[in-house]
Computed example of a mutant assay.
Amino acid sequence: MKKILILEDDIKIRRILQLELEHEGYEVVQAKDGIEGLEKFKNEYFDLILLDLMMPNLSGEEVCKKIRSTSQIPIIVLTAKEQLLSKVSLLDMGADDYITKPFEIEELFARMRVALRNKKTYITEDLITYENLKINKELKKFYKNDEEIVLTKREYALLEYFMLNKEIVVSREKILENVWGYDFDGDEKIIDVYVNILRKKIESENEKYIHSVRGFGYIFKKKGA
């Protein structure tokens, strides 16, 4: 069940959204202002945030900036503002989408489905997820389909670097610098050794993640059979 955080100061709108979302099968948590919303965000895991711009204590713009400083969770803004500049600025500050009040609930559901479908990586201070993979940075643990897979310190560091740079081609030089350190003076083929170990631990016949880019480095991207 997907868990949605609603940050909205209008109690009637919050209640309507709660009832409609729960009817669609979502789990819903509400916050009446930006400060309360940030506290709930810090203490619980959510799949998506519905964020009102005009809130007391802390504006939606400020909430969006604070969340984006630590997380890539999808954010859909609920705004009564009509100015184009406001909407463009909102997307620039990190919102995934916006919808102008009043709106049809089916349109909101459609936008939510798109945002959730496009959600591949969710990074917070302690959590990185990609597809069915998850890293807990605080505990230095890795999970696939919520089952822990034990990694050595170096294997973990390499996988974390790949997941932080998912779907981006990274050079061997960058991998050595970030995983082994600038003072490493060994053979860069050590990367291939650890990549092969990781492949055996995290991949299957139908799921491939680490792909060689000939003459350059690697790309971390899920591909099925």
Rank of each mutant, 00 (worst) to 15 (best):
I4G: 01
D9A: 00
A31F: 01
K32C: 12
K32N: 12
K32S: 11
E36P: 08
E39H: 09
F41E: 03
N43P: 10
Y45M: 12
F46Q: 05
I49L: 02
L50P: 07
L51D: 06
L51G: 02
P56S: 05
S59E: 01
G60R: 01
K65D: 00
S71Q: 05
I75Y: 02
I76S: 02
K81V: 05
Q83G: 11
L85R: 10
S86A: 04
S89T: 02
S89A: 06
D92S: 00
D96R: 04
D97C: 03
D97V: 05
I99V: 08
P102D: 06
E104K: 13
E106A: 14
R113Y: 09
V114D: 07
N118I: 05
D126N: 13
D126M: 09
I128F: 08
Y143L: 06
N145V: 07
N145H: 05
D146G: 07
T152G: 15
R154S: 13
S171F: 10
R172D: 15
K174I: 12
I175W: 11
L176C: 12
E177G: 02
V179R: 01
W180T: 03
G181T: 13
G181E: 07
F184A: 03
N196T: 13
R199G: 15
K208H: 14
R214Y: 14
G215V: 09
F216K: 14
G217F: 06
I219C: 06
G224M: 13
